[in-house]
Design a protein around this nucleic acid. Structure first.
Lengths: 342, 342
DNA sequence: TTGTATGCGTTATCAC
DNA sequence: GTGATAACGCATACAA
């Protein structure tokens, strides 16, 4: 270490001072000052790899996200980032591009890079549960956000989808809508099931009946954009069939935008001719015209929570403690222009 | 190294085989096979930090982006990612949150982490040129995407804004529009100046005159969302003033969405009552209803190019060679629903 | 064809 | 109060 040579002290003293380790109290104030200035002058930067090698700590947390270009997840990333900032952990984010194989490769790479924890942002695509379980066994603190995997032993944080579905239908009901059509998400997605359950709960409670003809389901989940095109197409089908409805409750915002497109293709306007409500509150929801009424997922909070749990588990050395197995955050109704009273 | 013990060979042989170094040819095929299987069986993972320490190479490239939640940049990130994939470099992305101070901190962190190259994605916010120049001097291969900094000695890649502006106005002209209003970007942004120059070039060439009253400029650039709200507001001003116009050419997509909102607030419809064209082609442009006609920036290509140049410079050890100082990529007109003939 | 020794830049444990 | 020294896990020059 050249700081040692330049200052005339030994490497040990330098190391002790620069990390202000407990032993630093034993060194004279003059020595400390001297070493500090020399280090400063030389523009000394501790070599992270050497340090990591020695301390066996990487100070990094792997973040694997399923599709970075999905607006859903950039806000989650921001939350993670903010939360990790003061802890000194560097998030290393990897984008699986909705590709399972890639996901597994990145998981491997994260392990190779000796990440101390893992956050998986699982929007849309299926997650390799087996691979994740492996990690859990390896005692790597892991939290998945956006998907409920707590039964597989992975701590999970996501929005309370059931509650969200309930809020969505209640909003339409309160505006006077009784003929509501439903665009459900792909059946492989548990999100969809929960939201639908919430809607049915409200329906029962308020005494409205939902005819089977009012319910359509999106096909498989090859691609997040499926929601848009399928939403448009299924909406078009209703219109051609002559089904009468005054509102559409969509699985998510993309689907809602698809529905709006479908309505527009048939010359119908939102919200004058039909109200539309989405789910997620992606950034675009606010910017579209008409802006989209939707159920907001607290994405940043989800990210923060995940990061918090992971870093807590790291610092107290326990994968078991810290955070509940399943954390549900409250959704929030955001009323905008796409829904109106009758 | 335990693989050595388990296989009965020496660490050197193991190391040589596992990296298939040139010397590997000297080893018997049987030895190689043996070592490989043992390593496999033990689930051996080379320790990246130890390796980096020894080879003095981190195999990482720092990517500092100004605002990850800006849809503009996630596609650039994807391009970088794809390009870097086969090279073995790991992109370490850091989000400056539109905050200059944060940017500088991350730059420092990137250096500490011994990144071998740097890509700066500079959408919107002002870039600390001074800090970047410092890096250039430090011989760290650096490319900035989205901002022209080549005069400061930093290789830059961005879209040909002048050409894009030209294409935009030509499109409106060809649809028959003669009364076109212009929403220029903040004057601090050179992007805005170039796009405007392209429009003026077409105006001169086609003989149309642009009255000063048809031109408004967005205020400062505190926040990317400024474009939306200001676009709406300025459009409203025109409408209240009673200015007649049949089309709006907006600085970028956000501004265009703002304009659409402004028109809508006054009961005007797009494209029936007024055409609107944007610039960028953010993902939302396709999903909005009406979908937005715009000038596409080849974001993924920009990312790829930047990553390619940086990794090339790293591998041939020269910061000077590889890539032009300023690379302009061609924009592309994407015609959608928001523009129509008169 | 294979093994040994050394050092990369740290931190930690001692001894002085 | 301070300094010498041994690891951390790997790659490599050189010896065998």
């Amino acid at each position: 270490m050249d700081v040692a040579r330049a200052s005339g002290y030994s490497v040990s003293s330098v190391s002790i001072v620069l990390n202000d380790a407990p032993l630093a109290d034993n060194l004279s104030a003059k020595t400390r000052r001297k070493i500090r200035t020399v280090a400063e002058k030389l523009g000394y930067r501790p070599h992270v790899f050497a340090r990591s090698l020695r301390t066996q700590r990487s100070n990094t947390i792997g973040v694997i996200v399923f599709d970075m270009s999905d607006p859903f997840c950039t806000l989650i990333l921001r939350g993670i980032d903010k939360q990790l900032q003061p802890t000194g952990f560097l998030p290393v984010v990897m984008d699986a591009h909705n590709n399972r194989e890639r996901f597994e490769r990145y998981l491997e790479m994260a392990l190779e890079r000796r990440v101390e924890g893992l956050v998986v942002v699982a929007n849309w695509l299926f997650v390799s549960i087996a691979a994740l379980k492996q990690q859990a066994k390896d005692r790597l603190p892991t939290v998945v956000v956006g998907r409920d995997l707590h039964r597989s032993g992975v701590r999970s944080v996501l929005v309370d989808n059931e509650r969200g579905g309930y809020l969505a239908l209640r909003h339409l009901y309160e505006l006077g809508h009784r003929k509501v059509n439903f665009l459900l998400g792909p059946k492989q997605l548990s999100d969809s099931g929960r939201r639908w359950a919430g809607m049915k709960r409200f329906a029962v409670q308020s005494g409205i009946e939902i005819a089977a003809s009012r319910v359509l389901q999106l096909p498989g989940l090859s691609d997040p954009l499926t929601g848009f095109s399928s939403g448009a197409e299924l909406t078009g089908r209703w219109l051609r069939d002559g089904t009468r409805f005054t509102a559409i409750a969509a699985f998510d915002d993309m689907t809602a935008f698809g529905a709006i497109r479908g309505l527009n293709n048939h010359g119908l306007r939102v919200p004058e001719d039909c109200s539309v409500i989405g789910f997620d509150d992606v950034p675009m929801a606010e910017l579209a015209t008409p802006s989209l009424t939707t159920i907001r997922q607290p994405m940043e909070s989800m990210g923060r929570y995940a990061a918090e749990v992971v870093s807590a588990q790291i610092s107290n050395g326990s994968v078991r403690r810290g955070g509940e197995p399943l954390k549900l955050l409250a959704p929030e109704l955001v009323v905008r222009q796409s829904t109106a009273g009758l």
